[in-house]
Amino acid sequence: MNNPVMPKPHQILDIIRETNLEYTFRIETDMRPQHGQFFQLSLPRVGECPISVSNFGEGWMEFTIRSVGKVTDQLFSLQPGDELFVRGPYGKGWPIDELRGKHLVVVAGGTGVSPVRSLLNKCAAEPDFVKSVDLICGYKNEDCILFRPDLRRWAEKFRAIYTLDSQVCEGWETGLVTTHISKVPFDYFGDDYAVIIVGPPVMMHFCGLECKKLGIPDEKIWVSFERKMSCAVGKCGHCRIDETYVCLEGPVFNYTVAKDLLD
């Protein structure tokens, strides 16, 4: 009988330094998660943490991790060839069937680009999956930019706006992602579109409000967020908001539900 909370070791194939604080770990695995699902990553006698899948392919999977605590700091001491313990996948991913054939708008900020990265790669690799992609991607400053090769490739495939919160940088817009949502040609899409918003809770909150100002219905908006997901199987209650267990019913939520969950 498979134990849903038993971590298993996986060899680290590569470690990519994205920024001073974020590394992408590629592990060897045959698992094929849904786009947007998460795993629990752990080190024996250290602890574990929930991390969304940032990319995957045949025989490998990637996690982009920010060094923010005991477990993640220790992860950064690992090298290719070492073992990383993993359990999952958990939660609900992006609603692929509902996105198929629509105009897709993605608004992502900071490390929030990670949970939607594999979906964007799918859109780039499969031109018939969606009708079009409008991507708004924002970072705090130049030192925080993740996935530079992907950003260049996405800019060739999608209508892309890349912005830094307050820093002026060649090739980049300036301002919060919320200031650029109105540039998306929603009128052209008619009723055939979907919006994905991923980032810090405060960013998703104000992006949701901006979408509402533009007349975008709640049911067309999807968000993803992680909230203290410790057990990942709905037993510990750390991620619970009222009667909603984020680890089970999320991390992807339709905005009809998410607007009452965001802090």
Rank of each mutant, 00 (worst) to 15 (best):
R148H: 11
T111C: 14
K220F: 04
S67R: 15
K140S: 07
T179M: 08
G91P: 01
G234L: 09
G171A: 03
E98Y: 06
C236T: 12
R66L: 06
E18D: 06
M203T: 06
D97G: 05
I96S: 10
R117D: 00
T64L: 14
T72A: 00
P185Q: 06
P50E: 06
G250H: 03
T64P: 08
L75Q: 12
S118W: 00
D191G: 09
G93Q: 02
F186Q: 02
R240D: 09
P127H: 03
G109N: 01
T174S: 12
V198R: 00
T19S: 04
P95N: 06
H103F: 01
F85Q: 03
G93S: 06
R227F: 14
V233G: 06
N3T: 11
V202K: 04
G93E: 01
F129N: 02
K259Y: 02
G88P: 00
R148I: 11
V46H: 03
P251H: 11
G234M: 01
D192H: 13
S224T: 08
D150S: 06
S67A: 10
T179C: 07
F38V: 12
L13M: 10
T19V: 06
Q37K: 02
R159K: 12
K213N: 07
L176P: 01
G81C: 03
L261N: 11
E249L: 13
T111F: 00
C239K: 01
D30S: 08
G234Y: 13
Q40G: 10
D192N: 15
L209K: 13
G110D: 04
D30G: 05
D191L: 08
V168I: 09
F225M: 14
S224Q: 08
M229Y: 05
K102Q: 09
A160I: 15
W154G: 07
L248H: 02
I241A: 10
G101S: 11
E226M: 05
I216Y: 07
L119F: 15
V113C: 13
V195M: 07
E62A: 07
V198C: 15
P80H: 04
M229T: 11
R148L: 10
G112H: 09
S67P: 03
P44K: 12
G199P: 11
Y245T: 15
W154F: 15
V71R: 04
G69L: 08
R66T: 07
M61S: 00
Q37T: 13
K220H: 14
S67W: 10
K92C: 09
